[in-house]
Design a protein around this nucleic acid. Sequence first.
DNA 1: ACGATAGGTAGGAGATTCCCTACGCGTCAA
DNA 2: TTGACGCGTAGGGAATCTCCTACCTATCGT
Lengths: 114, 114
Amino acid sequence: MTTTGAREDRVFAALANATRREVLRLLRDEGPQPVQALADHFDMRRPSLSEHLKVLREAGLVSEERSGRQRIYQLEAQPLAEVQDWLHPYERFWRDRLKGLSDLLDRMPDDGET
Amino acid sequence: MTTTGAREDRVFAALANATRREVLRLLRDEGPQPVQALADHFDMRRPSLSEHLKVLREAGLVSEERSGRQRIYQLEAQPLAEVQDWLHPYERFWRDRLKGLSDLLDRMPDDGET
DNA sequence: ACGATAGGTAGGAGATTCCCTACGCGTCAA
DNA sequence: TTGACGCGTAGGGAATCTCCTACCTATCGT
């Protein structure tokens, strides 16, 4: 119904690469940009960056808008909102855990396992 | 400074697989379990699942605790908290954007793309 | 029309992923 | 001790990833 898992696969896989995460950061911090401006930040040939942009596009994380002979890329944050939704059911876990842990450590000084 | 990106690579890569995400969900919803109990949920040989567990371990997403000849796996949510932290600077983006979008959709009923 | 510029696509090399079948190691029950 | 059980590791094969060097199309300036 809502998820085959395939969509999330794409988003997470897109995020599993430092270059692509840096592209997202650049688009977030510096706004929409053409490919060349992005490419200047990387030690990589432009066609390789083009493929990273393709991965990001197919994950829905960026969109392109043609402007003359340039392609202006823009951040599309919706898939990231979905990641946050996915994360949500785990939230109580690290809350409970960290809170309970510090609590525990506070009141039982005997434990000390490896 | 704080990140080479290598750690985040591992976490995102670990999450970029439906089997591994399902393992995390099982550990979250059903609590700590030995490998065999997890394996029962998948159409996959046990050694393959073992490798998925290894990936999750190396990403810090699960921990194992030996109990006799069993290995009890447990969810470790801290890397997910780090993912949420990573997500945070993007949050304002989808807030702004979705608000503007629903606004737009509300007042232009003509759209109808393929 | 011509050359330069912006950027995507083709195809290939090397690494990595994801599954498999063997097999090895430690633990429990007899 | 012998065997069965729980689980990891070795090694291999097909697919995918990530980079590269060509090369192609479209647009701009002259």
